[in-house]
């Protein structure tokens, strides 16, 4: 195993997520694409944590950071899903290119 495999997989997954965020219309799908991008970051961190040349005292820093990212992603998902449900109830629509009420 080499670090480059982890890096390449993370780069590919991140670009798939970028494409999803830019190309999909439904807010739920954009949220799923954001989750994919967060996972790409986590893969990168795990790869660097496994191959780091730190001593054993600092080897777990990468995994701690992944734990925090997963926590914040869960909080973000709960809040975003609440907003999407509210939006659906009020506007009957979750397509982001038709929700331009903030356009002034």
């Amino acid at each position: 195993m080499e670090l480059i495999y982890f890096q390449l997989l993370a780069a590919i997954l991140f670009c798939i997520g970028i494409y999803g965020v830019l190309a999909r219309r439904s807010a739920v799908l954009i949220l799923m694409s954001i989750e994919l991008m967060l996972n790409a970051v986590n893969i990168n961190l795990i790869g660097y944590a496994a191959f780091s040349s730190f001593g054993s005292a600092h080897r777990n820093l990468g995994q701690v950071l992944v734990i925090f990212i997963i926590t914040i992603a869960a909080a973000e998902l709960a809040l975003a899903m609440a907003i999407i449900l509210r939006l659906y109830r009020n506007k009957n629509n979750v397509n982001v290119d038709e929700l331009d009420i903030l356009k002034g």
Binding site: M1, E2, L3, I4, Q7, L8, A11, I12, F14, C15, I16, I18, Y19, L22, A23, A50, F51, S52, S53, S56, R59
Partner: peptide, 27 residues
């Protein structure tokens, strides 16, 4: 969106590929 994603993939992938990875052992 496809062009942006592909160019980002190139931007990320080329430095990864040309980098001389000083691989240490997994721990």
């Amino acid at each position: 969106a496809l062009i942006v994603a592909m160019s980002l993939l190139g931007l990320l992938g080329i430095p990864i590929l040309i980098e001389d990875s000083t691989t240490t052992t997994m721990g």
